[in-house]
């Protein structure tokens, strides 16, 4: 049944830190690698070495420039995968029951054996988190690496999503957002974690941590309390540079 569960016992999801993401796309690559070899149909590529390569990805990294009213622009790297919404519109539109949200942990999944490839769920998702695979003709989306997080064949340290495990700057965090004491919930509380497109009413489980305040180049003097102590003690270079300096002065 593609009705949504009235509540889920846990809300497993990701917390993505826009402050520390360096835009390296390592999560994109590891996600593609893990998910093309494991759960469901492989993530195909079309014309991968040709003039117009295209393929299915479950996680993509955008980059935005943000220009404050006053001051210099900032660059923000912005990873985006399924947000495992509590009020997931992609689930209720599905005519076959292939799309569903799990009661036990809130993960939103697609049963690829019953998906007819109508594409409606991708239309219902405001975030662009679903992509139809052009080879398998079924809908693909982030599984929250359901085949890793409960997988007892993996060492415990690896029982987190591939993207989280890979991220070199720890910008992706995995946990239970229904538990207020979990690390991820505390991170969200401490850093003002936010929903994307709250007005769409999807109630996403994944949260984004906004970038911290940046230092400003045009105001460095005001804040540089150490500057007086770091002033050069002598204008007179020594050694080779000193000789060069004097020699050049004489010319």
């Amino acid at each position: 049944m593609t009705t949504l569960p009235s509540s889920t016992r846990r809300k497993l999801g990701l917390v993505i830190d826009l402050d520390t993401c360096v835009g390296c796309h390592a999560c994109v690559v590891s996600c593609k690698g893990w998910n093309t070899e494991n759960y469901g149909a492989p993530l195909s590529d079309q014309d991968p070495y040709g003039a117009e390569p295209s393929g299915t990805f479950l996680n993509r990294v955008h980059s935005y420039e943000v220009q404050p009213d006053d001051g210099t622009a900032q660059l923000v790297h912005f990873p985006k995968s399924c947000l495992h919404c509590d009020n997931a519109p992609c689930v209720t539109v599905c005519p076959t029951g292939a799309s569903y949200k799990r009661q036990e942990d809130g993960i939103v999944l697609v049963n690829e054996d019953t998906c007819i490839g109508c594409g409606l769920c991708a239309w219902a998702c405001p975030y662009g988190a679903r992509e139809m695979d052009a080879a398998a003709k079924v809908m693909k989306k982030c599984t929250l690496c359901v085949d890793r997080i409960y997988n007892e064949n993996l060492p415990e340290v690896d029982r987190v999503p591939a993207c989280v495990r890979t991220c070199p700057s720890n910008a992706r965090h995995f946990g239970d957002l229904a538990d207020p004491d979990s690390d991820v919930s505390q991170l969200v509380a401490a850093r003002g974690g936010m929903d994307l497109m709250p007005e769409q009413g999807t109630a996403p489980v994944n949260k984004y941590l906004p970038p911290r305040l940046k230092d400003r180049l045009d105001r460095t003097e005001e804040i540089d309390v150490l500057a007086p102590f770091l002033a050069p003690v002598t204008d007179q270079p020594k050694g080779f540079l000193g000789w060069l300096d004097k020699a050049l002065d004489k010319i």
Binding site: R60, H62, E65, Q74, F78, P210
Partner: peptide, 29 residues
Amino acid sequence: ATATGLGHIGTVRAFEPPHTGPNYLLREM
């Protein structure tokens, strides 16, 4: 601004897309 949640900092502009080729989203939507 609401899509990225960055509107409180300033004006948001798409700087670089995640992929250089087309994808399902761009083709369909």
